[in-house]
Design a binder for these strands. Structure first.
Lengths: 187, 187, 187, 187
DNA sequence: AACTAATCGAGACGGTACGTCCGGTCTTGCA
DNA sequence: TGCAAGACCGGACGTACCGTCTCGATTAGTT
């Protein structure tokens, strides 16, 4: 009962958070600044999110509903597309700013860590599982391998390139797709 | 001239930082707490490190002088040892707490980012380069591949498993060593 | 036209305000707490009172229609009764909590200040004027003195005892009645 | 040990508080505004005063070391001077703004209430006691009366005039001095 | 019986102040 | 000059409260 939440406020918060993430980065992001830019009160933010981290999570990882990777006809093609999707997502200014900060902060919040995994890792793994199932159906793979391992093999190098080496992931998708496909098919 | 720095102070700072990192994590670490536990003044810290990040960096990534991987006689063996070394380092409580935090904070400090890369990435890549050279000399590889890519392929999955999936990297070294070796030799 | 105000709501607001004043004091009183205790919405309060101060004013000073002091037959007796009435009112838990708070807040609201004076000071002065008139009629006083001054002389010491010295006003009425009567009759 | 408090900071806080009290009143006074005007951090304020009330108390009631009233040679004269001193203090812009607010807020803080009494009431009573002692020595009074009562009789009407009736206390000192002297000497 | 208009409880809203905390700097007196 | 202690500025945090507004549901009086 009572007055319902104003959905324009929800959107204003997320939009302000995203634009400030892109401008100031994760460390420079302030709840007061978000409230000011969104032209709302801080209470409206804390009514929705218990902490700054949850707000950033909602703004940056919200619905990473990356659509199921299209069937390209081959494991190699499917993997390349999936890696490229991860690369595209990770190089978004908002995600690029938010993800390292979130990865750091979730280590002191198991609850948020679980939600991050659900929204980020699990979604990627779902696409991956479908892709691998197709490869098995095609006869390219004898049986579907450990999804956790393959996911680490696919997402890990992207993260290492972008966040550890601090290099551009240009051309990474094809090279990584080829390598992972080769490793899986054992050829 | 004047009074020389007390090396016991250096050690007390690093020890206090490490123990607090393990206890409270990166986000819960405060410079005041380090000073109190080390029974020193804050000025003694800031005389040595310009920022909290540098202090953590010094305490957690200090001299990752992981020794050149021993020659096991095969690319597969060498890679497995290298991956295991990375796994061992990353699963240290101190490193596990510090690395995500540092990866987040260095995004607003190119200077520290460069030092982090030098101390962390470059060291790993040096070991990797030597290892690959040996494989070329043995005839296992026709020519030494792109070190950045191989490094991403080796370190990335470890990071993804530990920091993204939040899983234990037990048994990862053998599996990953085998996969990367296979991908490199094209078999 | 439209739905008429529910008088039970009026009473619930005032009762809740009084009980919370007695429990939490003026500073600890919140409009939300009043609404919750009265089991009404905040809008019902602000439909009646423009500010929290007006609500407290209505609840604590409402109709201090202290009845005209009974004619005891002498100036001394009449004054003693009047002082006792002021003491009784001021030591009410609700009034004791509300009056200092109102006296503080009305300094930034001339409108409420005027209403406070009308309801509180003027009422006391009316009783005082009648009392003094009777004394003149009796021949105890040659002419009626300045009511403001006599009021200050009568109400002031009560306030000083209760709010400045924070002491109990027990026995104050007789002593103060005697002193003021003596000062007025010049004996 | 450690760095000592900077007395210029103390003074800056008090000066800023006083000027803001005079400008904005008690209700409009903000700790942030004090910090900004004093060009100091809020921590420097809260290191000295636990609450806003204590800060205002220190700034407005600080050392009301009203000097012992000069001996005018008569009880009437001495009382008139004392009342005038109270009037002068109470009509100071700073005190006028602070005292009602403090009187309201101390009702929820027995600790501050005691300190207020010590610094404000007790000081006035000390002067009063000396004055009464002189009157006894002169033979104007048979014995020194109850100081609490006389204080209420002296300070109360001033407060009633200024804070209840909201009138100017011009000329109050002589009139009140005469009345209290008459009441005490019983003439 | 429908319509109108103001009420009601509930609770979200913008704004603003609170008191706490932390990072990085500065200032004591002592060694 | 280094050191422990601790005060300093600046600024963000999350909480609380005020007075306003918005919802859906009553509840009269008016057609």
């Amino acid at each position: 009962m009572g007055r319902p939440r104003d959905s324009r406020v929800d959107e204003a918060i997320l939009a302000a958070t995203r634009s400030l993430l892109a401008e100031s980065g994760y460390a420079g992001l302030t709840v007061d600044a978000v409230a000011e830019r969104a032209r709302i009160g801080k209470a409206a933010i804390y009514r929705r999110y218990a902490t700054k981290q949850e707000m950033v999570f909602a703004a940056a990882v919200h619905s990473v509903d990356l659509p199921p990777p299209p069937d390209t006809g081959s494991l190699l093609g499917d993997l390349t597309v999936l890696v490229q999707e991860i690369v595209d997502h990770v190089t978004t200014p908002v995600a690029a700013a938010a993800i390292p900060g979130l990865l750091a902060d979730i280590r002191s919040s198991p609850e948020l860590a679980a939600r991050f995994r659900d929204a980020f890792v699990t979604v990627q793994q779902a696409g991956l599982a479908e892709l691998l199932g197709r490869a098995v159906a095609r006869g390219e793979l004898p049986s579907s391998p450990d999804v956790d391992l393959v996911h680490a093999l696919v997402a890990g190098p992207v993260f290492a390139t972008v966040y550890l080496q601090n290099r551009s992931p240009d051309g990474l998708a094809e090279r990584l797709g080829r390598i992972v496909a080769a490793a899986l098919t054992g050829v």
